[in-house]
């Protein structure tokens, strides 16, 4: 599946590269910045983006791991004794502590 899917993508790109015209001009190949000249020099040269994206990324990692912990629990939940519920509850409550913290810190506020 992976192989064939990958194949499709690559074939498409190569076909296009072979078949399509190549008549680039400087202006045409300039980054689009609403008509202004680009301000900086391209990939990896000190571009800055809002720190908020980092925060979201980190939060995602944390909560995603939390989800990942939940999956095995969920899959086995019916076979587990009652104790599992309290364990899950503890887990969620601890998670909510962190959630409350980021909420109050305004990490989830977007301007």
């Amino acid at each position: 599946m992976l192989v064939s899917a990958l194949g499709i993508g690559i074939i498409a790109v190569i076909a296009s590269a072979l078949l399509g015209p190549k008549k680039g001009s400087k202006a045409k190949l300039m980054p689009y910045e609403s008509g202004n000249d680009p301000e900086h020099g391209g990939v990896g040269t000190g571009q800055r983006f809002p720190v908020h994206f980092y925060l979201v990324a980190m939060l995602f990692i944390v909560f995603d791991i939390e989800t990942a912990f939940f999956y095995p629990l969920a899959a086995a939940y019916q076979k587990l004794p009652q104790f599992a519920f309290f364990e899950a509850l503890t887990f969620v409550l601890l998670l909510l502590v962190g959630y409350y913290y980021i909420l109050k810190k305004g990490v989830l506020e977007w301007r």
Partner: peptide, 17 residues
């Protein structure tokens, strides 16, 4: 392994910060 993965994630979060 699960726990180590979690630790790695926590490390990523803090390290990136």
């Amino acid at each position: 392994v699960f726990i180590v993965m979690t630790l790695a994630a926590a490390e990523v979060a803090i390290g990136l910060a």
